[in-house]
């Protein structure tokens, strides 16, 4: 029984690790702020969920499990609000998102200040 729990924990936490690395990779690699917010959202949601569920399976104390679940709930409530505030603030400040050029109805993404970074 313990072995099964251990294996499930390993799977969950390793998946969480892979997601975290992909998140960090995305933060460095993606081209503009709005797409980076999507990448950051991965760490906020599924990676947190997987790692903390993995920890919860390993704890034998009910209070510890409850606290882990509370952290998950707090992060799930606060992170979209922070992301929205960030996206809204940068949109109001006039930061143009880079849009896809292949779509026919989308406007061209060739902003004059795009190549400066």
């Amino acid at each position: 029984m313990d072995l099964v729990l251990d294996i499930i924990t390993w799977i969950l936490m390793l998946t969480g690790c892979v997601l975290l690395i992909i998140t960090g990779f995305g933060l460095l690699r993606l081209p503009d702020l709005y797409t980076r917010i999507h990448a950051g959202g991965m760490a906020d949601t599924l990676a947190t969920f997987l790692i903390f569920i993995g920890l919860a399976l390993q704890s034998d104390d009910f209070l510890v499990t409850a606290k882990l679940l509370m952290v998950i709930v707090f992060v799930f409530f606060t992170s979209p609000t922070a992301s929205y505030a960030l996206a809204h603030a940068s949109f109001v400040a006039g930061l143009k998102p880079m849009l896809d050029t292949t779509g026919s109805d989308q406007r061209d993404s060739a902003d004059p200040d795009e190549g400066k970074d």
């Binding site: 917010i37 929205y84 809204h88």
Partner: peptide, 26 residues
């Protein structure tokens, strides 16, 4: 609704008006 859109990675709510929501999707 707006927070659910943002919580789902790949879509972020950028602006929320009275009856429309502006979404940036990946």
């Amino acid at each position: 609704y707006a927070n659910s859109i943002t919580l789902t990675p790949g879509t972020v709510t950028v602006d929320l008006d009275n009856d429309t929501v502006m979404v940036h999707a990946m």
